[in-house]
Amino acid sequence: MNKFFSNRRLVIVIVCLIVSFGLMSVSVAIRNKRSTPPMIQQFGNDVVGIVNRVVAWPVNGLKGSVSGFSDLMNTYQENQRLKSQVQELAQTKVHDQAISQENKNLKKELKLAHSLTDYAPVNATVIARTPSAWQNQVIIDKGSAAGIKKNMPVLSGSGIVGRISEVNRTNSKVELLSNSSESANRFAVTITNKNGQNVHGIISGYDRDKNLIEMGNVTAKTKIEKGDKVSTSGLGGVMPAGLYVGTVATTGTDNYGLAAKISIKPATNLSELSVVTVAVRQAQTTN
């Protein structure tokens, strides 16, 4: 042991430790404060991202053919199930069309350009996933060139899955709702109950064992039941309103028995992502 920690080695080890901690704290500070990473990091990420797409192409082709086969096996059952839903959907769609037309006319009447619910979708493909248990992150193939900015919400399937955490020129990183870091998933959401009453709140964490999103510090006395729909409220930041988050799974009180704690079942499977949509809010943002 004495030999191992000779003077020179000891100095090298200590210098490495200091540099390591320094780099970590600087990068976390930059990540929290600035909207884009430093120029060198952006450039490096762009170059690495381009090659990533080339390597991913044959792997995705392989996966495509395998999943194509299994999809074929499921087709009949799925078709039966979907037929029953299509009828209902057509009606909802027509109704939606009429409502959005009416909404547009009313906005024009009020001279309102964009309200909180308006967003422009940017479609992107997932090209890689961070191989680490501590950052539930995916990398998508659209960046600031496509109009993506930090903190924008990312959707997949029917609901929200995460938000943009780092933007490069041609790719960006998406932090998923299941991320365990302390600042990852603070969305402003609203729960609408059966009587049409709203409860506002903020997502406060994620339960890894049960795969549920947690919403804490709810002090409103409005009655919330299992199955009530949760959507984004559009308050604060760059998030549009009305993006589907999930349904209420359980309600209870927090450890102190003062405020309500609500568990939300996510609308989409957070681990099965291949194509995502970034919602670019059109209303004026505050930051």
Partner: peptide, 22 residues
């Protein structure tokens, strides 16, 4: 590259909640 691509291509197998294989 395969490290990241495999994670993105087979997320159900590698990242089924709560386990995660890096």
């Amino acid at each position: 590259y395969l490290d990241g691509i495999l994670g993105a291509t087979f997320p159900q197998q590698l990242f089924s909640v709560p386990y995660s294989m890096s």
